[in-house]
């Protein structure tokens, strides 16, 4: 028997049901006392969004309060991140922190108004995954050699989910390896960019594996290279960059963070629940299906990881001369 949401049925006659009843009385009740906003700093339909929704579902069951996923895209994920950095640290506003918002954008945008380490309470690493170059099936690009040849001949356009994403940096890096810059076309999130590649408006795209996975399987785009060290178990047919003679190994990562000064009990509780969720078979298999692997870091480990990524990507961004465009 299906579990019917009782309140929805009861409220149905009044047509305005079911928006959780805990009343704001002014006295701070035990956390979480109201729905939790999970800010996703990218557009819906992309990897970040996917992972947020994947984790939000089991998490809200464990916490007993709905988690509302809110997409705040823009400017290399810095718009949504700033929002969380400035939020009240009461555990009701959280961020899906990621490589773009917390490692690349700080180096890429000189004028960022948050510090990726100091302005956040980092809670848990959720998942790591490789990037993949995909091509419009009728563009005549089957592998990196095809791409390099065509690119040297006439210069190719390459789409990404936005300036400052790790996928954008991969484009810049590949350009500097090939000795000619790609014409980078930033979109507002991976969904719209993928549409343009499927429709043949742009021949190439650098995307994170999770958001590209279903389109690769369906054959609506052709995967030409994966940025993992080894071939990916879920995509044994897709060769790596290394196999094709380019020493490029990158992974993008996604985690859970809140504003700085988040009370320790809240951080611990979240870290515990998330770790339990990542340990379940269903989450693992869902993550594997879309090409990610679960990460298991304590809050301290995750904070240290973010700091090390900031230190890693800063020089890389300056070296490649990547600019927001």
């Amino acid at each position: 028997m299906v579990q019917w949401p009782r309140r929805a049925i009861l409220g149905g006659g009044l047509a305005l049901p079911a928006l959780a009843r805990a009343r704001a009385t002014g006295v701070q009740a035990a956390w979480p006392s109201q729905p939790i906003k999970l800010i996703v700093p990218f557009a819906p339909g992309g990897t970040t969004d996917l992972i947020a929704r994947l984790v939000a579902t089991p998490l809200q069951e464990k916490l007993g309060q709905p988690i509302v996923v809110e997409n705040r895209p823009g400017a290399g994920a810095s718009v949504g991140s700033l929002l969380v950095a400035q939020a009240v640290p009461d555990g009701h506003t959280l961020l899906l922190s990621n490589i773009a918002s917390h490692a690349i954008s700080p180096a890429l945008y000189g004028n960022l108004r948050y510090d990726p380490v100091r302005d956040f309470s980092h809670i848990a690493l959720l998942t790591l995954n490789p990037s993949v170059f995909v091509a419009y099936p009728r563009a005549g690009i089957a592998n990196l050699d095809d791409m390099a040849r065509l690119h040297r001949e006439r210069g190719l356009d390459m789409a990404s989910s936005g300036s400052g994403s790790s996928n954008h940096l991969l484009i810049v890096r590949m350009g500097s390896i090939l000795g000619r810059e790609f014409n980078h076309i930033p979109f507002r999130g991976a969904g719209p960019a993928m549409t343009a590649v499927i429709g043949g408006q742009v021949p190439l795209m650098s995307d994170s594996l999770p958001s590209a996975a279903s389109h690769i399987r369906q054959g609506s785009v052709k995967a030409i290279a994966m940025s993992s060290a080894e071939r990916h178990p879920s995509f044994p047919d897709v060769p790596t960059f290394r196999e094709q003679g380019h020493d490029v190994v990158t992974s993008s990562w996604f985690g859970l963070s809140g504003p700085a000064q988040l009370p320790r009990p809240i951080v611990d509780r979240l870290s515990r629940e998330v770790s339990a969720i990542l340990d379940t078979h269903s989450t693992r298999s869902r993550l594997a299906e879309i090409g990610g692997s679960a990460g298991q870091y304590s809050p301290e480990e995750y904070a240290a990881f973010v700091a090390s990524e900031v230190a890693l990507w800063g020089p890389l961004v300056r070296e490649t001369g990547a600019k927001p465009d």
Partner: peptide, 20 residues
């Protein structure tokens, strides 16, 4: 296509993904 054309549709994608 699995591609949302507006914010409401994006939420629908979310609902579907949650359902696996």
């Amino acid at each position: 296509l699995g591609i949302p054309s507006n914010a409401v549709m994006a939420l629908m994608v979310g609902a579907l993904i949650i359902q696996g």
